[in-house]
Amino acid sequence: MKQLLEALANATKHLSLLDAAFTENYPDYKKMIRKLEESNGYKGLCREIYVGGKKKIIAIFRDNCITIIRA
């Protein structure tokens, strides 16, 4: 699990650095991001990446598989 968490942390750090650099240097990037954030699927994409918050997540471990259920 530690390796997975480190990989996710690195990916987040790199994406944040790229976002900051593009935001600062490319005005069209800001427009593109605004369109993305206003698109119909954006909130759903965010929920797929991280549900978090008040919703409950149940993980069931069985037969070397993990099943995730959102309650």
Rank of each mutant, 00 (worst) to 15 (best):
Ala71Ile: 15
Ile66Met: 05
Arg62Gln: 14
Ala71His: 07
Ala11Gln: 13
Glu38Leu: 03
Asn40Met: 12
Gln3Glu: 15
Ser16Arg: 09
Ile49Tyr: 06
Leu5Ile: 03
Gly53Val: 00
Ser16Pro: 06
Lys55Ile: 09
Arg62Leu: 11
Asp28Gln: 11
Tyr29Trp: 01
Thr67Gly: 01
Val51Cys: 13
Arg62Glu: 14
Ser39Gln: 04
Thr67Cys: 02
Glu37Gln: 08
Gly41Val: 11
Ile60Cys: 01
Asn40Leu: 15
Ile57Val: 11
Ala21Asn: 10
Tyr26Ile: 12
Ile33Glu: 07
Arg62Thr: 07
Arg47Cys: 10
Asn40Val: 15
Ile57Met: 01
Cys46Asn: 07
Met1Glu: 12
Arg70Lys: 13
His14Met: 15
Ile33Tyr: 02
Ile60Gly: 02
Arg34Thr: 15
Lys55Gln: 07
Ile58Pro: 00
Asn10Trp: 08
Val51Pro: 11
Glu6Phe: 09
Thr67Pro: 01
Glu38Pro: 01
Lys35Leu: 08
Tyr26Gly: 02
Ile33Cys: 08
Asp28Ser: 07
Phe22Cys: 10
Ala20Arg: 07
Leu36Arg: 04
Arg62Ser: 13
Ala21Glu: 08
Ile49Asp: 02
Leu4Asn: 04
Glu37Cys: 01
Glu24Tyr: 02
Tyr26Pro: 05
Ala9Leu: 03
Lys43Asp: 07
Asn40Trp: 15
Leu45Ser: 05
Ala9Arg: 08
Ile33Gly: 06
Arg34Glu: 14
Gly53His: 01
Leu17Lys: 14
Met1Ser: 14
Ala7Lys: 09
Lys13Ser: 07
Arg70Ala: 11
Asn10His: 08
Lys43Pro: 03
Tyr29Met: 00
Leu36Asp: 10
Phe22Lys: 10
Asn10Lys: 03
Ala9Lys: 10
Ala11Ser: 11
Thr67Glu: 09
Pro27Asn: 00
Ser39Tyr: 01
Ala59Lys: 14
Met1Leu: 13
Ala11Met: 07
Gly41Thr: 12
Tyr29Phe: 01
Asn64Ser: 03
Thr12Ser: 09
Ala20Trp: 01
Met32Leu: 14
His14Ala: 14
Lys55Gly: 04
Phe61Gly: 03
Leu4Met: 08
